[in-house]
Structures are given as C-alpha cells and as structure tokens.
Simulated scan of single mutants.
Amino acid sequence: MDFSLTDEQRMLADTLERLIADRVAPEQRRALLEAPAGERSALWQTFAELGLLHMPFAEQVGGLGGDGTDLMLIMQALGRGLVPEAYLAGLVLPGDLLARLGDAGQRKRWLAPLLEGEHQLALAWQEGDARYDAHGIATTACREGDGWRLDGDKQLVLNAASAIALLVTARLDDGRLGLFVVPADAAGLSRRDYRTIDDQSASNLALEAVSLSADACLSADAANALDATLALGRAALCAEAVGTMEVACEQTLDYLKERQQFGTPLSRFQSLQHRMVDMHLHLEQARSMAILAATSLDRPAAERDYRLAAAKAYCGEAARFVAEQAIQLHGGMGMTDECHVSHYAKHLVMFDHYLGDCDHHLEHVSDQLETAA
C-alpha cells in the first residue's frame, strides 16, 4: 500500500507546522488557555480562513471533502503544538453527527456557522454508570406535546463551556437512541465546569425537565451514526497522540544531549540510549497504528470498529509509556509546569482515557477474536 502524501497533503502539513510554530509558543498557549470561555480566538479565526474547519467534511454539506488522512495530518500538527483549541471536541465530533443526521434546516442553523468559525458545539454522550459504552445510557427523552423532554446526567463533556449548543444522546421510550440539539442556555440545563489534568475544558451536565421543540431532534435512531462518529474521533485522537509523542521524544533527546553528569552528556550513557530507543519504537509503532486507523474509516462497521479499537488500545499504551519515560529522563524538573515536556506528558496520559481506554478497547478486540475463532 502506498502511504506517500499527495502534494496538497504535504502543503497542508507544512502550512500547519509553520502556523502553529508561529502562533502557539508556550506563552501564547497559556494565553489561549486563560481566555474567557466562548470567546473566539484569533487562531480559531485563522483556522476558518485557511479552510481547516471545512476540511474534514464532505462537499455536500459545505466542506472541502477531506478524508481520514487529511484529518490525521491536521490532528498530528495540533498534537505537536499542543494546541488548546477544541478542534476535535468543538468541531469534528458534533459537526460529523450534524452532517450525518441533520436535515437541510438543521445543517443551515448549526453546521454552516460551525464551519465558518462563528460558533462551537459539544457532544454529550458519556455517563458515569455507562463508562465508555455509548449505548448504555440512562438519560431519557420523552414526548411532551409536540416537542421533547430530556432528563439525565452527562459527564466529561469537552468544550461544553464554549459551546452555543450541545448534542445530547438520550434513550427514547421505544428503546432507540436519539440525538438532540440542546441550546446552552436551555431551562433545566445546569453545568459544572472544570479542567482536566491536561488543561482541557470539560463539564458535567444535569438535565432536569429540559423542554425542546420537535426540530431539536436530529434523529430518533442515532446509534449507527454515533458509532461512526466516535470511530472518527478515535482515529483523530491516535493521530494527535503521535504528534504529541514526537515532540516529547524530541525534547527528551535534546535534554539528554545538553544535561551533563560527571562531565559527560547524559546521551552518552548506554542505559539512557536504550530507553530513548524504546520511546522511538513505541512512537513508530503508534504511527503505523494511527495510519491504520485513518485509512479504516470507510470499512464496514464491524471491521472499522475492530481496527479502531486495536489502534486506540496500542496508541494509548504507547502514549503512557512515552509520557512516563519523558518525565523520568528529565528527572524532578520534568514534573514542573516550567518544563514544557510535562504538559506533553499530561496530555499523553489523558489521551488514553478519551473515547475509551486501553482496557475497554482490548476487551473489544478480544471479543472479536473469540467470535471469529
């Protein structure tokens, strides 16, 4: 199989690398993190002007028709720069569901301004008792006159504080999985905001008798679309993790070359050379799995989910290994905020928990292998 990039894809990667190097230095990243929630940053507007917000979506819904490889390149660049913008949580995941399930009016209302950078959305699918099972939810949606009533709780909703509306999954009376657009200021919706350990904005939601109009329902049978969107998200996360691991390896190697012990650079010690080799082995194997994930999105659902589970499980293991080695090889200073590699390490540790951790995905792979045996 030919994994070489096209001229357009190389241009995309180069453009992103230059942009992020210029606009997301450590001090600039801190300013982005401290900006008020909901305020559009100049960087997000630049993303819109460059077409990066349109890239992952089909031309039929106003996008540029990018494929899994294009998204992989974007997410890898964002991972390298540790860019705090909610490209995945605020654009790709909710936008993909809108593109799959929304009618013309819903796309015009919610998707079109999303691609123009005018607002952001968030996807609320995870619940405490269901852990990573997107279908095992307790939030309910009941008919109320011509509209709907939602009740339940959602956890770890990334980007909810900056979203103008939330896409919420709920169980219908007939057992099907519905998807609803809930305005951020809807009566009965309360939110508790917090930061994850890697500085991402997250919220827990409580929905108590939230009344919605009939057109707030994107779909009364959203299970398959949700699975496809979460698969896309896992592929994107794998690519982002690869970019983050690249920089963690580079910064660790630079440190070993500069730091001296007994008058000799640490990079000359054979035991530390072996540990750097192990870090790069994990990185390159994760890169291969990220490519597998990006090129498997159009496969039949069962095969797609098997491949994505394998990729996410391995990349999660590799991310944690690289994070731990980077911290240990930097010594005590690797735990401080002033040492930039610590932020990369925290992001890599959290990566394993987004959209399913290693144990969850290994269990899926194991079940598939047993079924096939």
Rank of each mutant, 00 (worst) to 15 (best):
L177A: 11
S296G: 13
F57C: 06
A220G: 15
L256C: 07
Q260E: 15
A130Y: 00
D22N: 09
L348E: 02
G95F: 03
L5K: 11
A112C: 06
G147N: 06
G243M: 08
G68H: 00
F262V: 14
A104H: 07
F3L: 14
H347C: 05
Y132P: 02
Q328G: 07
C142Y: 11
G81P: 09
A206H: 02
R234Y: 01
L43S: 09
R195L: 13
D298Q: 14
D199N: 09
R176I: 11
D278G: 07
H119P: 05
L167D: 05
R191Q: 14
L207T: 05
G263D: 12
D7E: 15
A170S: 07
P300D: 11
S203D: 05
T6F: 15
L43D: 07
E258N: 04
L281N: 14
V365E: 06
G263L: 07
E258H: 06
D193Q: 10
L121P: 06
D193W: 07
T264N: 09
L348S: 07
L207N: 03
Q368F: 13
D146C: 03
K257S: 10
S219M: 08
D14W: 06
Q285T: 15
Q126I: 03
A310E: 12
L5Q: 12
Q273M: 08
V182E: 07
Y255C: 13
P183C: 12
S288V: 13
V83E: 08
Q273R: 14
A86W: 00
E338S: 13
L281Y: 10
T6V: 11
T244Y: 00
G63F: 04
L266P: 02
D22T: 12
A309E: 05
E8T: 15
D357R: 04
V24C: 15
A21Q: 12
A86E: 13
Y194K: 08
